[in-house]
Write a protein that binds this DNA or RNA. Structure first.
Length: 717
DNA sequence: ATAAAGTGACTTTTT
DNA sequence: GTCACTTTAT
């Protein structure tokens, strides 16, 4: 049987575990993805289970796609019919199919974080509540937390005045979502649980259908997800979950690693299988990871081991500031690549907060080295993308008021705040949504609107209503791409964006990228396109084909691995983050976050901290992270030439600066040629990290700082 | 109604 | 240093 080939005894045991509940506790790099895929293949090929009767839940869409491809590879295309996806994607499908039992219809749209915040702000204004006293972010976080714990509005507990406020906002927030025929991320789970609890017949249908449930990253499920699993497993009880409590890093999103313990209580007959052998990292890296995580209390100790040997020592580096940290990373990568010891794609740079990526990106750009940045927000958060998506969402669901307000005057069409307000007031009086009113507005036709909306505004509104009507009429016969093209043409979006500036040009190119994506939905409906866009995850945007270094947050690094990992910004306040200081549970999660980061590394690990970290763009003295002190010195490089630094009564080990001796090849005044920047003159040259760093003034592009080993410079004179 | 200029608040982490 | 949001001038 090829689906057992190359698996160790524990992995085989997991793959072939019989029926009933199974809990696989899998350390990092222990091959849990392999176990899951092989198990699915085993169920289908060996036990003859129909793919239709299997549900597998992954943490990202990317993981789902990979699993599908791998299962197909194992059993040759027999995986068709498998239900596979993230919790949200799976719930999304169920909700659309079963919309008749729900207070919204199958054309519902999904409100993302930005939409959610807009609604909270709108409600706060509506209630005349001070946004300073009641931070929209924080109010929304409370609502979200409640939803993740399956607390519906009516059951929201009130123990303080603030709770009272949250409850009022939550109530109105939910009204607005329903009026908009929309759900937010949390609702997708919540409504699915509601559906299964409210409709016993339906619950039984789904529970009977799914003979086997498989769940990846189980430690990051929240109560809503766990409850959903329990309902779905209620008939067959074949639930196979894989997780590692030490890698639980989404507590703030409602994830509760205690679900692992809860699972053992709810399914006392569960088989428990431990996967401790690591196939990814060297022993030094594993030892460092264990040293960090061992300091967390109340955990089940795990002994990770590898047969890969000790490997290279870990490099701990102190840099002057974040700029130096970024250049250090870029220089190291450039050197290793130039020396032929690694490929650009082998490297990953991980950080705690997104803001930290900026300086790194600048450092890469400065030397002309390409990189990729993981983060969907970067693309889908752009104004132009959000605008066009809002148009599409409006066509999909004209009741979506958030999208309507977003685009009603973009590009400018003479509908200002006054007109919008008149429309909203009138709609409210009629018991309709503004979108519905808009669709009914006929130019010149007599209607009650005549008195309520001033005539000037009525003309502009009716014109827009006509456009919207046209698009809606074609929604079902046009493909998403055709519809998008029609809208772009009708609103002259290109002319609006391309104002002659470079930025405008870039914005239009982003639209073309979105257009390319829409083109992939040739035979599918607009709903599918919009749903996929809403549920896209950061990791989904990762382009594995490009052989370039990867920049990503520690959260986004979950489940990935790289030969060489840099973890930057290991400073108090950054990692651990200052927002976690007062919360013991949060502090434990910070530790797990670093644990996840360290265990992503296969061969080399760099841990970097700076003496001055950036705060809002200004430098501020910083202390090294407490976690550095937890790593045994014998695992760290530079033992012989080591000096100790005392920082806050903790001893830290830092490598001495010992630049490799390299002779300067370039001197000020030299004329050089760069492959993409053309001719220029060397202004300064200095040796750094065994390489030569040059400042060159190029005729075409101005001053640039380059690394000699990388820039492929040729001397002209 | 709109464009420009000023303000302040703020950064964890994301489906 | 960056964003969203508000004020001010046209």
């Amino acid at each position: 049987m090829d689906y057992l080939e190359g698996l160790n005894p524990q992995q085989q045991q997991a793959v072939m575990a019989g029926t009933g509940p199974v809990l696989v506790l899998a350390g990092p790099g222990s091959g849990k993805t392999r176990v899951l895929t092989h198990r699915v293949a085993y169920l289908i090929a060996q036990l003859g289970v129909q793919p239709y009767h299997i549900l597998a839940v992954t943490f990202t869409n990317k993981a789902a796609r990979e699993m599908e491809a791998r299962v197909d590879g194992l059993i040759g295309g027999r995986s068709r019919g498998l239900t596979l996806g993230t919790f949200h994607a799976v719930c999304g499908r169920i909700l659309r199919r079963e919309a008749e039992y729900l207070p919204f219809d199958g054309n519902y749209v999904i409100f993302d974080a930005d939409d959610q915040l807009r609604i909270v702000k709108q409600v706060l204004r509506e209630f005349n509540l001070d946004e300073k006293r009641y931070r929209p972010q924080s109010i929304h976080a409370s609502i979200s937390r409640a939803k993740n714990e399956l607390i519906f509005v009516d059951d929201f507990p009130v123990q303080s005045y603030r709770d009272e406020v949250v409850k009022r906002v939550y109530t109105r927030y939910q009204q607005i979502l329903l009026a908009s025929n929309a759900v937010d991320f949390d609702d997708m789970l919540l409504w699915t649980v509601f559906l299964l609890e409210d409709q016993p017949a339906l619950r039984e249908r789904y529970a009977r259908r799914y003979e086997h449930l498989l769940v990846d990253e189980f430690q990051d499920t929240n109560l809503a997800q766990y409850t959903l699993l329990r309902h779905l497993a209620s008939f067959h009880r074949n639930i196979f979950v894989v997780g590692d409590a030490d890698q639980s890093i989404y507590r703030w999103r409602g994830a509760d690693y205690r679900n692992v313990r809860r699972f053992e209580q709810d399914f006392p007959d569960a088989q428990v299988i431990l996967l401790e052998q690591n196939y990814r990292s060297t022993q030094n890296i594993l030892d460092a990871a264990m040293a960090v995580i061992d300091r967390n209390p109340y955990r089940v100790p795990k002994k990770l081991f590898t047969q890969r040997g000790a490997g290279a020592k870990i490099v701990v580096r102190e840099l002057y500031d974040d700029h130096e940290m970024a250049s250090f990373v870029v220089n190291r990568i450039a050197n290793d690549v130039a020396a032929g010891s690694a490929q650009p794609g082998d490297f990953a740079i991980m950080y705690r907060t997104n803001a930290q990526s900026r300086l790194l990106e600048e450092a890469f750009l400065a030397v002309g080295l390409p990189y990729k940045l993981v983060g969907a927000q970067r693309f889908y958060g752009r104004r132009e993308i959000r605008d066009v998506v809002a148009y599409l969402r409006l066509v999909q669901n004209p009741r979506d008021e958030v999208s309507l307000t977003r685009v009603i005057n973009v590009p400018r069409r003479g509908i200002g705040n006054k007109s919008l307000l008149a429309l909203q007031t009138y709609a409210q009086r009629m018991g309709l949504t503004p979108g519905e009113v808009l669709l009914q507005l006929e130019e010149g036709a007599e209607s009650p609107a005549e008195t309520a909306i001033p005539s000037r505004a009525r003309v502009s509104l009716a014109a827009f209503g006509k456009l919207l009507r046209g698009w809606c009429a074609q929604r079902d016969e046009f493909s998403p791409l055709e519809l998008m093209d029609r809208i772009l043409a009708d609103i002259r979006y290109r002319e609006y964006l391309e104002d002659g500036s470079e930025e405008g040009q870039e914005r239009w190119e982003n639209i073309m990228e979105l257009r390319r994506l829409a083109g992939e939905y040739r035979s599918r409906r607009l709903v599918d396109f919009l749903e996929d866009i809403a549920l896209i995850s950061d990791q989904d945007t990762l382009d594995e084909a490009a052989n370039v270094p990867t920049l990503l947050t520690l959260h986004a690094a979950k489940g990935l691995e790289f030969p060489v990992v840099f973890i930057v910004g290991l400073n108090e306040g950054t990692l651990p983050h200052s927002r976690s200081f007062e919360d013991e549970e949060a502090m434990q999660e910070e530790r797990r976050l670093l644990y996840v980061g360290i265990t992503r590394a296969r061969d080399c690990l760099y841990l970097l901290y700076s003496l001055n970290k950036n705060l809002y763009g200004y430098p501020e003295p910083a202390e090294p992270s407490r976690y550095l002190g937890d790593i045994p010195p014998e695992l760290v490089e530079g033992t012989s030439r080591r000096r100790s630094v005392f920082a806050r009564r903790r001893q830290l080990w830092v490598e001495d600066d010992a630049p490799a001796a390299v002779e300067q090849q370039f001197h000020p005044g030299m004329r050089v040629q760069h492959p993409s920047w053309g001719e220029g003159m060397v202004l300064t040259s200095k040796l750094d990290e065994g390489d030569e760093v040059l400042d060159i003034f190029f005729e075409d592009v101005g001053l640039k700082r380059v690394v000699a080993s990388l820039a492929r410079l040729t001397v002209i004179s």
